[in-house]
């Protein structure tokens, strides 16, 4: 995909919308940051490379204007999910899709370079990332530092778009592999799993970054994690309350999580927050043949029912 083509599309889309949301260079060479383009002269700020990790569709529900938005394949599912839940007016959104060959996990890159200041980041045509720090250049394969979600990506091309910047790409990843990690984890003993989550959630500092980054967390400032009316969790910083918070987050996203991974990207403690939601998604697939954010006409399974549930059997004692 050429950046020039993307800029051309943005320029065209600008004519019919109030703002286009894209990416520009962030505070250092390793970070891209969202930018809101309202004037033609801002179009030149726009960048596109594997550092463009944020899910820009997250902004859609809070904007009342007519918006153009740049989405990767994974991000596009957010828009479809919004449509299923009636959270956006599709006629007010112009979707600029980018076929994506994978992004990087900034956290993984930083770990590779031992959190040294970043001086320059380059991407080679053969899929390498070259990161320059005061102690020299480090070369790493893009696949090595990709976020987990890229490893099993089924939708490199947006599932829905008005303009596509580039040629559609089809996924080469095995569809059966999508929940392999979840299935593997589930095979562990109950004690192992319990210990795992106790260890992970005990690190939670209840900063709510995961929630704030989540495009599907519609409650915004009304989140019950910080409310007394109703009073589901106290402000106590113990494991029980932390787990309760994460269960609230997971269950409120049941059958809604589009697996954009923003929660995990935002977590300062590196807690695998998306894992519970992906487990639920794997069950949604089995129970209802449902995958969030793929078909705009689908109904999220928790807000509907079948009189005869084909895949739910009565449990016996």
């Amino acid at each position: 995909m050429s950046l020039d083509k993307l800029k051309q599309i943005i320029t065209d889309v600008m004519k019919e919308v109030d703002v286009v949301i894209g990416y520009k260079q962030g505070f250092d060479p390793l970070h891209a940051t969202p930018c809101f383009i309202t004037k033609p002269e801002q179009v030149d700020q726009v960048i596109w490379n594997p550092l463009c990790v944020q899910n820009l569709a997250s902004y859609l529900t809070s904007l009342k204007k007519k918006v153009g938005v740049i989405v990767k394949g994974c991000d596009s599912r957010t828009i479809v999910q919004f449509m299923q839940e009636g959270l956006i007016d599709r006629s007010k959104v112009v979707v600029i899709g980018i076929p994506c060959t994978g992004v990087v996990s900034v956290r993984k890159v930083l770990e590779k370079v031992k959190h040294e200041p970043i001086e320059e980041v380059k991407f080679s045509d053969d899929g390498m990332v070259i990161v320059k720090t005061p102690s020299g250049e480090t070369k790493m394969a893009l696949s090595e530092v990709a976020p987990d979600k890229c490893e099993t990506c089924q939708y490199p091309t947006p599932v829905l778009y008005d303009h596509l910047a580039g040629e559609p790409i089809t996924s080469t990843k095995d569809p059966q592999s999508v929940f392999k990690d979840i299935e593997e984890f589930d095979k562990k003993s109950l004690e192992e799993k319990k210990a795992y989550w106790e260890k992970e959630f005990d690190r939670c500092i209840r900063c709510y970054a995961c929630r704030n980054a989540c495009p599907m967390c519609v409650c915004q400032d009304s989140c019950i994690a910080e409310s007394r009316e109703p009073h589901w969790v106290s402000q106590k910083s113990n494991l029980t309350e932390k787990m309760m918070f994460h269960m609230i987050h997971a269950l409120h996203l049941a059958g809604r999580c589009v697996e954009c991974g923003e929660c995990e990207r935002a977590c300062p403690m590196g807690i695998p927050v998306n894992k519970l939601k992906r487990k639920i998604n794997s069950d949604m697939k089995v129970l209802f043949g449902y995958e969030p954010g793929v078909k705009p006409e689908d109904k999220p399974p928790m807000f509907t029912f079948s009189v005869e549930e084909k895949n739910i059997e009565e449990h016996k004692l």
Binding site: E192, L251, G255, L276, K279, H315
Partner: peptide, 18 residues
């Protein structure tokens, strides 16, 4: 009918949590 879906979802999630 809603309960059945929600509770089945939970029943499958619990072992994942240990």
């Amino acid at each position: 009918f809603y309960a059945r879906r929600r509770l089945e979802m939970l029943k499958r999630l619990l072992p994942f949590l240990g």
